[in-house]
């Protein structure tokens, strides 16, 4: 569960604070990135039928790129749209990282098969200690691969953002960023609909009940002046 994009993005945001002036954005932007990636990267298919996506590192990479770029590039790309631009940068980077990480996963599995063959040989030779050591190295490899990929992709992402964003700063306007953000938010909700409503039996009925009850509560609160 630590591999969920929302969890990774929020943890990255909490740890990667660019300083007191940015504290609020450093927390809100990763949250936005994490929410969008969570909805976009949740695949309702069984694991064997899923496309190879590394959702675990996507949240960390997306949030890190957004927060670190925000700090470096704010003189060139001002925050006129309430951080929406940086949420977009983080989300799109996270999606790219998920695809790249998925490809790396395939190579890791090939490596695992070689390790498994060696582990079997060690077991047959009665070298239990060596077998265990080999397995623990496999565990360490997963963490190291994730950490290395997260750092490398973040550095690459921040470098690319530093290179590209100042050049297209004139094109980045509030309404334009708003349109793209709204479209991606829509895609995220469409993906969420596929996962939570269409896939389960009687999903429509339960979703309608949930929406209706929430609307009634909101209208009640609104009428009472609490919203």
């Amino acid at each position: 569960m630590l591999g969920q994009p929302l969890v990774g993005a929020c943890l990255a945001g909490a740890f990667l604070s660019p300083g007191t002036p940015w504290e609020l954005w450093a927390l809100r932007i990763p949250l936005g990135v994490g929410v969008l990636l969570q909805l976009l990267l949740t695949d309702p298919a069984l694991p064997a039928a899923q496309r190879p996506r590394d959702a675990a590192t996507a949240g960390v990479i997306g949030a890190s790129i957004a927060v670190l770029s925000l700090e470096r590039l704010h003189p060139f790309v001002p925050l006129t749209t309430g951080g929406i631009l940086w949420v977009l940068v983080g989300t799109l980077s996270g999606l790219l990282a998920a695809v790249g990480g998925g490809w790396m996963e395939l190579s890791l599995r090939a490596r695992n098969e070689r390790s498994a063959r060696r582990a079997e040989e060690l077991a047959l030779e009665g070298k239990i200690g060596s077998f265990e050591a080999l397995y623990w190295r496999g565990v360490a490899r997963i963490f190291l691969r994730g950490a290395t990929w997260s750092v490398a992709a973040t550095v690459l992402g921040v470098a690319l953002a530093s290179l590209l964003l100042p050049r297209i700063a004139g094109l980045i306007t509030g309404p334009r960023a708003g349109w793209i953000f709204a479209a991606i938010l829509g895609v995220a909700f469409g993906a969420g609909f596929q996962t939570h409503v269409r896939a389960p039996r009687h999903g429509f009925r339960w979703a309608a009940i949930g929406a209706l009850v929430t609307l009634l509560v909101l209208m009640r609160l609104h009428a009472g002046g609490e919203l």
Binding site: L41, I184, G186, V187, A188, G190, A191
Partner: peptide, 25 residues
């Protein structure tokens, strides 16, 4: 943008499940 994005994604994912990254781009 939000409503169209949601509706089109729901339709496209029915045809191409698991392609939410491509659809987002």
């Amino acid at each position: 943008p939000f409503v169209l994005g949601s509706a089109l994604t729901a339709l496209l994912l029915r045809r191409w499940p698991g392609r939410s990254v491509e659809i987002a781009f």
